[in-house]
Amino acid sequence: MQSCHWQENGEQQASIIGQLTRDTVPELWSQLQAWQTQIARYEVCLKELDRVDSAGMAMLIHLLQHAKNQNCHIMLTFMPSQLYTLFKLSNIDELFAEHIQVTDD
């Protein structure tokens, strides 16, 4: 069974761990919709994502908008190549370039 969870790593950082797919997005998104922050910049580490599909990509887009509505700028770190490819294929990679932090592994 697939699983995915949000792990707070501090006041300004969290990780998404597991498989971010159409099977796991509904439960994770229901949790994240309740997420509130007063922080101006928040880092979401994707280093421990095992798999991501287009539903996972869509959820991340909604998460960025949810944070923006709270005046918070999310930076995605350690973006898996699979997710970056989905962004490119969807022709939205340039729209979200300001949310992607290039990190060396």
Rank of each mutant, 00 (worst) to 15 (best):
E8A: 13
Q13M: 15
Q13I: 11
S15V: 03
Q19G: 08
Q19I: 04
Q19A: 15
Q19V: 10
L20P: 02
T21E: 04
D23G: 15
D23S: 15
V25H: 02
E27R: 11
L28A: 09
L28Y: 03
W29K: 12
Q31W: 10
Q33T: 11
A34G: 13
A34K: 14
Q36R: 15
I39D: 03
Y42V: 03
Y42D: 02
Y42I: 01
E43D: 08
E43L: 00
C45R: 00
C45N: 07
L46M: 07
R51D: 11
V52M: 04
S54C: 10
A55H: 04
G56T: 00
G56V: 03
M57I: 07
M59C: 11
M59Q: 06
M59P: 01
L60D: 00
L60H: 00
L60C: 08
I61D: 01
I61G: 02
H62K: 12
H62G: 09
Q65C: 09
Q65G: 13
H66I: 08
A67V: 06
K68F: 09
K68W: 05
K68Y: 06
K68V: 09
N69M: 09
C72T: 06
I74G: 01
I74R: 00
I74C: 00
L76K: 01
L76V: 06
L76N: 03
F78Y: 10
M79Y: 05
M79L: 15
M79P: 06
P80F: 03
P80N: 06
P80T: 05
L83K: 02
L83Y: 00
T85C: 12
L86E: 04
F87V: 03
F87C: 06
K88W: 08
K88H: 13
K88M: 14
L89R: 11
L89H: 12
N91A: 14
I92P: 03
D93P: 06
D93L: 10
E94A: 11
L95H: 12
L95F: 15
L95P: 08
